[in-house]
Nucleic acid binder design. Sequence first.
RNA 1: GGAGCCUUAGCUCAAUUGGUUAGAGCGCCGCCCUGUCACGGCGGAGGUUGCGGGUUCGACCCCCGUAGGCUCCGCCA
Length: 589
Amino acid sequence: MYRTHDCNALRPADIGKTVTLCGWLNSRRDHGGVIFIDLRDREGLTQVVFRPEEHAEAAAAAHGLRGEDVLQVSGVVAARLPGTENPKLATGAIELVAGDLTILNKADVPPFPIDEEIANEDLRLTYRFLDLRRPRMARNLKLRHRVVKTARDFLDEAGYLEIETPILSKSTPEGARDFLVPSRLAPGLFYALPQAPQQYKQLLMVGGLEKYFQIAKCFRDEDLRADRQPEFSQIDIEAAFITPEDIFSLIEGLFRRVFQAARGIDLPTPFPRMTYDEAMNRYGSDKPDTRFAMELRDLGDVFAASDFKVFKGALAGGGVVKAINAKGFAGVTTGQIEELTAMAKLHGAKGLAFIKVEKGEWKSPIVKFFSEQEKQSLRERLGIEEGDLILFGADKWETVCNVLGRIRLRVAEIQRLTAGMEALHFLWVVDFPLLAFSEEENKWNAVHHPFTRPLAEDLPLLERGEFSRVRAQAYDVVLNGVEVGGGSIRIHEQALQARMFEVLGVTREQQQTMFGHLLRAFSFGAPPHGGVALGLDRIIMLLCGTENIRDVIAFPKNNRGMDLMSQSPSEVDFKQLRELAIQVVKKNP
RNA sequence: GGAGCCUUAGCUCAAUUGGUUAGAGCGCCGCCCUGUCACGGCGGAGGUUGCGGGUUCGACCCCCGUAGGCUCCGCCA
């Protein structure tokens, strides 16, 4: 047996016991005679004292110890001398008086300090095995374990079966770019890594398993972000004979249990609900951050007969005029206005009109076009007061909502409205549109995915071809402006699914080659079913209070999808390629 | 594919308007030190300022290019 306790276990009650600890040397304070070391394992720190007059051999050996050496120390637990207790340590009232010291392994000098935060993430990722020794990373991974374990227990108690689905699966045309895996046995053919276990979980429902879940690894070959990795995890859930209401309460219960276990937080349920239209109209986003107001206000009626051509023109063309009131932001700098204007233009607006309310005066390039009546209405509608900054959007509805929604978030960031805020604003966004028209491809695409069920009352709209008005039985769960999950009730009838593919421009032949198995399954008595997928990494990020997904994954990829520690991806031997019938075309240098 | 910021000792950062030998703290190495916990004291090593080119009497500093990192847009059903 290597040890009797961990390094966070010993307390005054253990004084007098003979114990053995193992761990890494966190720090050494060598006084020439007496020597102190802090021994670290994943649970914490314990001070070990070497006294030459009591155990000369161990003390002599302790002089040669260096940071990160791996040690085994035996001795007697003692109270610290009065006045030398360390209240910063959980074990600070006691120390281990070393009798025996075994050096299990010497360590080279680490390339960066283990006991403090460093900024160089490149280096941290290259030496990830050292980075993981840092208490913050250990804490994040422990919390991740707690979340996953709690979710498994909760879903098990609710009657859900954890079932694995294939990693080697089939490429599908919709959605993200696939990672491909060449087949050796069928040269020239490829598996795809799953973007999500979507079809498999629906087929499990056809298979009569009724309630399924999985902590599913998903793969998407798209560019990375601070909150996006090419491989990530979902808590994937699907059930037969289930309504959206059932799913909402299941997921609310799951979040309650997880937040209780991970952070001791008692979440209020049920979560508020908001339709997609309302979210867009009030917050300019389908994942609204409701921790602060600054809501979008519609001004169509105010400017219906305006002399200001930009607003009147937008309204006449079927568009909208909206504004947000950035309370207390009249002190905005010229540079910030330029930044916000550039942001507005980047997302399709022609410009960004504004009013600064300073010293009782409305400072603005456009206010001269407004009548007294219009100014009065504005004042009331937006609650305008001294020190406010009003920002306008006038264009198509989608453009105005999107632009003002992004500006709202940027202004909140500049004003630090949510800095240090502990609030947890969960909400469901419901009644998403089923379809969205892509100008680029000149076709209709599924907003959620092609298996999403239209709202029953909107089926006639689908038949009449009024695609933009068809709503889906789809829902997202949003926390503090972050989409942490989403799902839908699925189509379970062959005919309706075929009709959806038709609308999406998938030919009958394509339907058969790509989705034939699913359509066939639906013809053999598929039960009504639906589900949801929760973004595990993002949930852990919010629980850990980090903005960086790499902080909650043991071995993540960097910005360019590379693992700096193992140097992957890497070149492979030409024999491997030959077996796979693959020829690499190298870019000219 | 595009944009912004960044790159100086092992780490975190300085370096005056372009000026002569590029500094500090931590870490590291050596010596000393018997109650520290950011231990302390003395001494020491450590740099092609990412790389390449240019301007200049002179470049860490200015210009061009390039590589790498991070963040964002596009992309992510």
